[in-house]
Every structure is written in structure tokens, then in C-alpha cells.
Simulated assay, not measured.
Amino acid sequence: MAQQITKPATPVKTSAAAKPVAKQTDARPVSFVFGKENYRLFIISIAIVAFGFFLMSGSTDIYGTTKIVIAPLVVLGGFAVGFFAIFKKAVAKVD
């Protein structure tokens, strides 16, 4: 059984070509989530954590105070500085 092609009862109305909408440019300056001080603190925290892991390394005196107490505290301090660097609010400069 073949399908029959039918024409619409009324002609289809097409609208005139729409004019493109001009995008308005926003003149606000770009603001980043983190400021320069945040990145500086984050790099310092990475250095502190790396120093703490360096204190933990070594092959002699496994149960020394440096490896058991001081190095983990240094690493935790580095993580604390990292959290502070992330949560510190960037100060916006007003010109």
C-alpha cells in the first residue's frame, strides 16, 4: 500500500529573515577566583609539604623524633597553609 502525498490545506506562512541580534560587550574587567597572594601562599604550602616529606625520608633511625613527630607536624602545617591559601578572599584592587 503506497502512501499518498497530500498538500496542506492552507499555504504555510514563513516569517521574514530575522535580523541578527547584536551582542552587547561587557566592559567589566576580568576577575579571577584567586589573587596573586593566594597563589604565592599555595606555592609556599607545597614547599612546606615537600620539606616535611623530605624530613620523613631516610633509612637510618626509623623511630627518631624527627620522623615520628616533627615531620608529620610540618606536613600538616603545610596542608593548613594550603587550605588557608584556598579560602583566603582575594582583595579587589580599586583604581
Rank of each mutant, 00 (worst) to 15 (best):
A80Y: 01
A85E: 12
V49C: 10
P20G: 01
A71Q: 03
F84K: 06
A2S: 10
A50E: 06
L41K: 11
T66N: 10
G52A: 09
G78L: 13
A80S: 05
A92Q: 01
I44H: 06
A27I: 03
K13Y: 02
I43K: 12
F83P: 05
P20S: 08
I46T: 13
F87M: 08
F79H: 12
K13D: 07
V94D: 05
K67R: 15
V49T: 14
S31D: 08
F53K: 08
L55I: 06
T6K: 08
A92F: 07
V49N: 05
V74Y: 08
A92E: 06
V12H: 05
A9W: 01
F34I: 03
P11V: 01
F79G: 14
F51C: 03
K89C: 02
V81I: 15
T66H: 05
L73V: 11
V12D: 06
P72R: 12
P11W: 00
V74Q: 09
A16P: 12
K89S: 08
N38T: 03
M1S: 12
M56V: 02
T66G: 06
F42C: 00
T65W: 13
G77L: 13
K13L: 11
T25S: 13
A80E: 02
V91S: 15
P29T: 01
T65A: 13
D61A: 15
I68D: 12
R28D: 07
R28Y: 06
A22G: 10
K36E: 05
